[in-house]
């Protein structure tokens, strides 16, 4: 009920007083939020580029094959909850099928979409 209070009652947060005319009423609220991949680390441990950005190889590529449709470099979560660029970890597992951070056996939990 206290949401209504904000509009009609004097006291917004505590709801204790109920004077008829409140001095300030919030009419419109424009808020901003930033989304990012839900990862434990911000940077990909393999290429040391932020997971929000394309991995280093993809960055190098993107200028070269501009004709290719926007190949976004997706993020990949393992069962161990560690995340890397999909490109980076795919190359990695060719050498060793373990998570580079915790040495658990690597298996993909999900990919970013």
């Amino acid at each position: 009920m206290h949401f209504l209070g904000m509009d009609d009652e004097d006291k917004s947060s505590d709801n204790e007083q109920s004077k008829p005319d409140k001095m300030f009423t919030l009419k419109r609220w424009n808020s901003v939020a930033m989304w990012s991949w839900d990862c434990s680390t911000d940077t990909c441990a393999i290429c040391r580029v932020q997971v929000m950005d394309a991995c280093l190889r993809c960055q190098a590529e993107s200028k070269k094959d501009a004709t290719n449709k926007d190949v976004t470099c997706v993020v990949c979560w393992g069962e161990c909850n560690h995340s890397f660029h999909h490109c980076c970890i795919s190359l990695w597992v060719k050498q060793s099928n373990r998570c580079p951070l915790c040495q658990q056996e690597w298996s993909i939990q999900r990919l970013s979409s």
């Binding site: 300030f24 009423t25 808020s31 939020a33 979409s113």
Partner: peptide, 29 residues
């Protein structure tokens, strides 16, 4: 409520609210 709504639509993401960027219209008497 919004965060819940948003994360349900986009899995694997997290939201960071940025209060510095918010702005409002207040009715004042």
């Amino acid at each position: 409520v919004f965060t819940k709504f948003y994360l349900a639509k986009h899995s694997g993401r997290k939201l960071q609210w940025q209060p510095t960027l918010g702005h409002c219209v207040l009715k004042a008497r």
